[in-house]
Every structure is written in structure tokens, then in C-alpha cells.
């Protein structure tokens, strides 16, 4: 067992983990943050995307010990403390960008990073940027609408977007 200390959603945590423990297992099984999902075993589906030091990462491709000393944000840490949704979360609701909800946490975390890393987003960029996130319900149509609207809202509401 190895000790790993990191900051998750702004809180410092320390846990003893096996060397093979994945970051997603640390989050789900050790910290009870079950909002991050596992949809595959080949790092393809993106249901487990979280932010590590501000960048989107598939948490099934990273060992928990590799996150030692880093800052992790999960879907649970995205909304404001008072429950106000992050502009990207709000856009997914507004545009019906989710159905069963299983891919949603990873999709939203990827979308936030996508919006932050592009000055301007268009449909093509969004579709290519979400290539690593599989959704089986929505056909992507409303997800694309949501991401474009969410990115726009993040630009016009920088204060809330920075709450992350």
C-alpha cells in the first residue's frame, strides 16, 4: 500500500492505496465520489473524465499514486457551493444534452475543458473535441448544442465559470 495525498474538489485528502489502484477507483471507492463513472476498460468512452490540475483526464488511465500532490476536480465539484449549476451544466439541462445521465459527468468535464481551451468554438470543433466521449442516448445533437451554448455562457459569466 502507498500513501497518496491530493486535493479533490478543494479538500485535501490522504488515502492508502494499492499501486495498481486507478484514479477513478480512488475517487469512487475510497472517496465515495460516485459521480465519476466507468463505462469501459480501454480508455475509450470518457465517462470517467475529471480535471487534474485544470486539464481533462480520463481517470481510468491514471494511477491514483500519479495524482499525488495534484488538484482534482470531479463533477461533484463543478457546481457552486449553493447548488448553482456551472454554466456548462446549466446548458446541458437547457438543451437536453443528457438522457440516461451515465456519460454526462465525463461529457460535461470534457466540455468545460474544451470551452476553456478554445477562443471560439464551432460545431466541427466541438464534435472533434468530444471524440473521446461516447454517448449512446442523445445522438450528440443536443450535446453539441449544449456545449456551444455552455461555452458562450462561460465567456459571458466568467465569475461562475471560475468557481470550478
Amino acid at each position: 500500500m502507498t500513501s497518496v495525498s491530493l486535493k479533490v474538489n478543494g479538500k485535501s485528502v490522504t488515502r492508502e492505496v494499492e499501486g495498481r489502484t486507478l484514479l477513478v477507483q480512488l475517487l469512487r471507492d475510497h472517496l465515495g465520489l460516485t459521480g465519476t463513472h466507468v463505462g469501459c476498460d480501454t480508455s475509450q468512452c470518457g465517462a470517467c473524465v475529471v480535471h487534474v490540475d485544470g486539464e481533462s483526464i480520463k481517470s481510468c488511465t491514471m494511477l491514483a499514486v500519479q495524482a499525488n500532490g495534484l488538484e482534482v476536480t470531479t463533477i461533484e465539484g463543478l457546481a457552486a457551493a449553493d447548488g448553482t449549476l456551472h454554466p456548462m451544466q446549466a446548458a446541458f439541462r437547457e438543451h437536453h444534452g443528457l438522457q440516461c445521465g451515465y456519460c454526462t459527468p465525463g461529457m460535461v468535464m470534457s466540455a468545460v475543458d474544451l470551452a476553456k481551451s478554445h477562443e471560439h468554438l464551432d460545431e466541427k470543433t466541438v464534435r472533434e473535441g468530444l471524440e473521446g466521449n461516447i454517448c449512446r442516448c442523445t445522438g450528440y445533437h443536443n450535446i453539441v448544442k449544449a456545449v456551444l451554448a455552455g461555452a458562450e455562457a462561460m465567456r459571458s459569466q466568467p465569475a461562475q465559470a471560475a468557481a470550478e
Binding site: T34, H37, T74, L85, Q89, F92, R93, L98, Y102
Partner: peptide, 19 residues
């Protein structure tokens, strides 16, 4: 009508069997 189930799914508070 906007979906009533969305808040829990968007904030990581859904309860799937593995949760």
C-alpha cells in the same frame, strides 16, 4: 418542460447500481 432528473445527473448525484 426541462427535465426534473437532470440536476442529480449533472451534479454527479445519480444513484446507479454500482454507486
Amino acid at each position: 418542460v426541462k427535465r426534473r432528473e437532470d440536476f442529480r445527473f449533472l451534479t454527479g448525484q445519480g444513484t446507479y447500481t454500482d454507486d
